[in-house]
Amino acid sequence: TTYKLILNGKTLKGETTTEAVDAETAERVFKEYAKKNGVDGEWTYDDATKTFTSTE
């Protein structure tokens, strides 16, 4: 399943996707990605669109 991440950081904005077996796995991948890029925001998830959003 393809999951999408929308980053709305103070210094980094953008989108990326990952293939994962479930939302929990995708969330771990995306949170590590955000951390590596210095984004520490509030997380939301929309199951209908398989989209995570992190907003600082």
Rank of each mutant, 00 (worst) to 15 (best):
E27I: 08
A20C: 09
G9L: 08
E24G: 08
A34N: 02
V39E: 04
V39C: 08
D40P: 04
Y3A: 01
E56A: 06
G14A: 15
G14C: 15
N8P: 03
T55P: 03
E32W: 06
T1V: 11
T25M: 10
G41L: 07
D46K: 02
A34F: 03
L7R: 00
T11R: 07
V29N: 06
T51M: 04
T53W: 10
L5M: 04
T2I: 14
K10D: 08
E19F: 15
D22T: 05
T49L: 08
K36V: 12
G14T: 15
A20L: 02
E32A: 12
T1A: 10
V21K: 13
V29D: 05
T49K: 06
K10L: 15
T53C: 06
K13S: 10
A48Y: 10
S54D: 04
T49V: 05
G41S: 05
F52N: 01
Y33G: 00
K35T: 09
T44S: 13
T51F: 01
D40G: 08
W43R: 00
T18I: 15
D47L: 07
G38H: 07
N37C: 14
Y45H: 01
K13R: 12
E19W: 15
L5I: 03
G14P: 04
W43I: 06
I6D: 02
F52W: 06
E56G: 05
T44Y: 10
K13L: 08
T16P: 02
T16S: 10
G9I: 04
T44L: 07
A23S: 09
D47S: 12
G41E: 04
T1E: 12
N37F: 15
K13M: 09
Y33M: 04
A48E: 12
T1L: 08
T51V: 06
T53H: 07
V39Q: 04
A26L: 00
T53D: 02
S54L: 15
T49S: 10
K13E: 05
K13Y: 13
T44M: 09
G38D: 06
K36I: 12
N8M: 11
K50C: 05
T17L: 09
T17I: 09
K36L: 14
F52D: 01
T53A: 05
K35D: 07
K10R: 13
T44E: 11
T11E: 11
T53I: 09
E32H: 06
T49G: 04
W43T: 01
W43E: 01
S54W: 15
E24I: 11
A20Q: 06
G14V: 15
K31I: 08
L12R: 06
T44A: 10
T1K: 10
G9E: 03
L12T: 13
V29T: 10
K13V: 12
F30G: 00
I6V: 11
F30K: 00
A34K: 01
T44C: 08
G9T: 09
D46W: 03
V39T: 04
T11F: 14
K4F: 12
S54G: 05
L5T: 01
T17K: 07
K31F: 05
A20K: 02
A26Q: 00
T11H: 14
E42A: 12
K4I: 12
R28N: 08
K10T: 13
A23T: 10
D46C: 10
T49H: 06
F52G: 00
A23K: 15
E27L: 15
K4E: 03
V21P: 15
E56S: 06
E56T: 07
D40K: 10
K31V: 06
G9N: 05
N37R: 12
E42C: 12
T11W: 14
L7A: 02
W43G: 00
W43D: 00
T51G: 01
D40F: 15
E15R: 05
E24T: 10
K35C: 11
T25H: 13
K50H: 12
Y45I: 01
A48N: 11
T1C: 13
T53V: 08
T16W: 15
T16D: 03
L5S: 01
V29P: 01
T25S: 13
T25P: 00
V39F: 15
K31A: 05
R28W: 08
T51I: 05
E24L: 12
T17H: 08
T51S: 03
T53N: 05
D46Q: 04
E15S: 10
N8F: 10
E56M: 07
T49I: 06
E56I: 07
G14E: 14
K50D: 01
T1G: 09
A48I: 11
G38C: 08
W43M: 08
K31Q: 07
T17P: 01
K10V: 14
W43K: 00
F30T: 01
E27H: 13
F30V: 01
L12W: 15
G38N: 10
V21C: 13
A23D: 06
N37K: 12
T17Y: 14
K4P: 02
D46N: 11
D40V: 13
T2Y: 07
R28V: 08
E32P: 00
I6T: 04
T16M: 15
K4D: 02
E24S: 10
T25I: 07
L7D: 02
N37I: 12
T53S: 07
L7Y: 11
T2W: 12
T2V: 14
I6P: 01
T53F: 11
T2R: 11
Y3P: 02
L12P: 04
A26M: 01
A23L: 10
T49D: 04
V29S: 05
K4V: 09
A34E: 04
F52H: 01
F52T: 00
T25Y: 06
K31D: 02
I6L: 06
Y33Q: 02
K36Y: 09
D40L: 11
N8Q: 10
E24K: 12
E15A: 08
T11N: 14
R28H: 09
A20E: 04
V29L: 11
N8D: 11
A34T: 06
A34Y: 02
T17D: 05
E27F: 15
S54T: 15
T53R: 06
K50G: 04
Y33K: 01
Y45S: 00
T25C: 08
K35Q: 12
Y3E: 02
K31Y: 06
T55H: 07
Y3I: 02
F30R: 00
D47V: 10
F52E: 00
T16I: 15
T49Q: 06
E24M: 12
T25N: 08
E27M: 14
T55F: 09
T2A: 05
K4G: 02
D47I: 08
Y45A: 01
A48C: 11
A48G: 08
V21R: 11
D47M: 09
L12I: 14
I6Q: 04
G14M: 15
K13Q: 12
T55V: 09
D22E: 04
E56F: 07
T51Q: 03
A48L: 12
D40M: 13
A48F: 11
A20N: 03
T2F: 09
W43F: 09
K50Y: 08
L7I: 13
E56C: 07
K36R: 13
G38A: 07
R28S: 09
D47T: 08
G9V: 05
A34D: 01
V29G: 04
Y3M: 01
A34V: 07
Y3F: 12
K35L: 13
E32V: 07
T1H: 13
T18G: 03
A20P: 01
T1P: 06
Y33D: 01
L7H: 03
D40Q: 12
E15C: 14
T51K: 02
Y3C: 02
A34H: 01
N37M: 15
V21T: 12
K4C: 07
E32G: 04
V29R: 09
K35R: 14
D47F: 08
D46V: 05
L7W: 12
G41Q: 04
L12S: 09
E19R: 11
K50A: 05
K50I: 01
W43V: 03
V21W: 12
V21L: 13
T1I: 14
E32S: 06
A23N: 07
E15F: 14
D22C: 06
A23M: 13
A48P: 07
A34R: 02
T2D: 04
F30M: 02
